[in-house]
Every structure is written in structure tokens, then in C-alpha cells.
Design a protein around this nucleic acid. Structure first.
Lengths: 204, 204
DNA sequence: GTCTATATTGGGATAGAC
DNA sequence: GTCTATCCCAATATAGAC
């Protein structure tokens, strides 16, 4: 549908991203990507030379898009608490749609850490991170959040609490099912639970 | 060294575990496992028939050992707070030694969720989990921890906060290095930070 | 039980026609 | 640019000697 159909190059990236996220780099097959893109295997090599290059292009495209959205959530008006809630809502919506993405992402950057440098430079992460960090520090000085909070830990805490349940989905789901608790409901509850948990822990 | 040298069967599992954790199922090579075990490739098949079966055996062996230790940390005397601290210390020590393990574990159970059922039944996880859960509920009734805490969320929170920084190591480390913060120091700080964070949030 | 040698297939990559 | 046909190596798996 839409303009995606316009050129093969773009169709390939879309198909590649889907297959790589599903199967991981090692498990993905060029044949499957070609099938999904509705083209021939040889064309993949014509456009992207090798599996490795195709992967890198697809990885960076998807990762950039997702990370941009995260940073955008913090570039809104309002207090730091509202920003955290914005972030959590967006985060959970995205993860809900792309459940396999977190495991894929962390597996691949562990396999090939150079990907991170490329991603970071492409996105100006350092600059955005710095800005974000300064917002937190300002809220500390303004007495809105507790002064003993260490900003890097706070950031990692927020991300940990929201991302981990998706990474650990199979085990959490299985254990919960033995106690007749719905995993879907559990995830949904976390949206407000995490915001509350974090805000309580940092409010001055 | 030690008695591990006694039989090939055991040497193979040790070597297989190391290679699988390092490379993942898809990325691992039978040849590399044979080399590491100091034996021939054909012997792997003699003992374990196929890569798949060897993987399953190695996976369950390592996972059982690690999960047992976690549950043991909670089977100590003392208050729930002491137990949480025991757990966090043990957890961090184990993860510090086996840094690639979390990504491996979650990647593999996502690829093949049946592994979780086998692991759970092997370890009586449900029973241990139930027991643990009841301890928390008792502390609630005793007014030691807040009554509005939901135990499943609390458990997931504790695990999220301690495991995630290892899963996200490459990206956290890279961003920190741009701000001249040491990742090692960061991890070390988290031991007490998490305990404090959690305890503050649940104390009645 | 442990080895060497070999079978077999899967999958990334290329050649070359159109 | 897109296809078909093919190459070729890597990797799992097996046969069979010792």
C-alpha cells in the first residue's frame, strides 16, 4: 500500500527489517526477505551487496525511527513528571506493537557493538541526552525532584522498568499463566504503575 | 581442571554452554564446541545426536544452575528487606561474572518458548514462586510493606532494575563513555541504589 | 568411545540473459 | 533493473575404521 510500493529499494528494507527482527541476523534468510519483498534474491545483492550491508541499513533505519520517537516524547511542554508520563505511554504503545523488537535490538548490539556508535552519531544522541540530563538537574535545583537522585540511574531505571517485561515476556507469561493472571492485563497495568513508582521515588 | 576432566560428556556440555552463550544458537558452530572441548566433532553427535539436542541440554543445565541460586537467595533467614538485599547482591555477582548470559537467555527463550516450560518444570519454579509470593503477602498483612503493593509487579520491578543494565550494556556504556562516566562504577553503584530504591518504594 | 573421511544440503553470492 | 541458473563454501550430520 501507500508510496512504499514505489521502489524496490524501500520494499527491500521493509521486508528485511521484518525478517531480521523476527529471526535475528544469524537466523534470517535472504530468500525469506526476497519472498516477503516480492522480488528475487539476486536483487537483494544488486541493491545492498551483502547480507551484512543489508542488515546494517535495515537495522539503522528502524532503530533511528524508534529512538527519534522516544526523544520526541521528552521534547514536549510541561513538567518533568508529565514528560515521564508521555515517554512511558509512547514507549508502551510502541513496544506493544513491536514486541519482538527489544530482544532483537539488544541481541544485535551485543553481537556487534559498532552498531551503537553508528546509531548514536546518526541521531545526535549525545546532544539530546545532555539536554535531557540538564532538564532533570534543573528540576533538582528547583526543588521539584529530590536532590539525591542521580540522573543516569534514574534514566536507566525508567527504561529498565518499561522495557524489561517485553524482553522477559516468555518467562513472565508462562509463570503468570500458572497463576491464571493475564500477561496482557499485567502489561497494561504497568503503564500507570511505573509512572507512579518512579514519580513517588523522585518527588521531593 | 578438577573432576570436570573426568568424562567427555561433561566436558562437551561445558564447552557447548560457553560457545552457545557467546554466539547464540544460530551463530554457534559445532566445530568450535568440539575444539573448545578438546575432542572431535563426530563425538558431539555420538553423545548428543544433533546440535538442537546438545543446545537444549546445555541450555537447561546452565539455566537450572543459575535459577536455583536465585531462589536460594530468598530461602535465607531474616526480613523481606534482607532477602531482597541478598538477592540483589547474588544477582549482581553472578551477572558480573556472566555478562553475556542475560542477552543469550532472553534471546533463546524468545526464539523457542518451549524451553521455558521445560525449565520451569525441571525447577519447580511455580512452587518456589508461590512460596515467595506468600512471604510478600504476609509482610503486607504484618504492616511491614505497603498494602497497595502488587506482588507480581514488585518482583518484576526488582528483576528489571537489576538485569536490564546488563542487557543494555553496549548502549549504556557507549553513552556513558561520552560523558566520561565509568560503566563499571555505574554497575557497582546500582547494588545499593536499587535496594534503596525498591525498599523506599515498598516500606509501609 | 574416539577418530578420519565423506556425504549432503542449505544458503550467500555471482554470471549473464533479457 | 529484474530475472534464472549456477557456483561454492560452510556447516550439520553420518559411515566406518580402529
Amino acid at each position: 500500500m501507500s508510496e512504499n510500493e514505489l521502489n524496490a529499494e524501500h520494499k527491500i528494507i521493509e521486508a528485511a527489517a521484518a525478517v531480521f527482527v523476527e529471526k535475528g541476523y544469524e537466523g534470517a534468510r535472504m530468500q525469506q526477505i526476497a519472498d516477503k519483498a516480492g522480488i528475487n534474491k539476486a536483487l537483494l545483492h544488486y541493491y545492498y551487496r551483502s547480507k551484512d550491508l543489508l542488515f546494517e541499513k535495515a537495522f539503522l533505519t528502524v532503530a533511528s525511527s524508534i529512538f527519534s520517537k522516544f526523544f520526541d516524547a521528552f521534547n514536549t511542554e510541561g513538567s518533568i513528571f508529565e514528560k515521564i508520563e508521555n515517554f512511558l505511554t509512547l514507549h508502551q504503545d510502541l513496544l506493544f506493537k513491536h514486541r519482538k523488537y527489544p530482544v532483537f535490538f539488544f541481541n544485535e548490539i551485543t553481537r556487534k557493538p559498532e552498531l551503537i556508535k553508528k546509531l548514536i552519531s546518526r541521531l545526535d544522541v549525545s546532544e539530546k541526552f545532555e539536554k535531557l540530563s540538564q532538564q532533570f538537574e534543573q528540576e533538582k535545583r528547583d526543588g521539584i525532584i529530590r536532590s539525591d537522585i542521580e540522573v543516569p540511574h534514574l534514566m536507566v531505571n525508567i527504561v529498565s522498568l518499561s522495557v524489561f517485561p517485553y524482553i522477559g515476556r516468555p518467562i513472565i507469561q508462562e509463570i503468570m499463566s500458572e497463576f491464571d493472571v493475564s500477561y496482557e492485563k499485567f502489561l497494561d497495568e504497568r503503564r500507570s504503575m511505573i509512572a507512579q513508582f518512579v514519580i513517588n521515588s523522585i518527588k521531593a
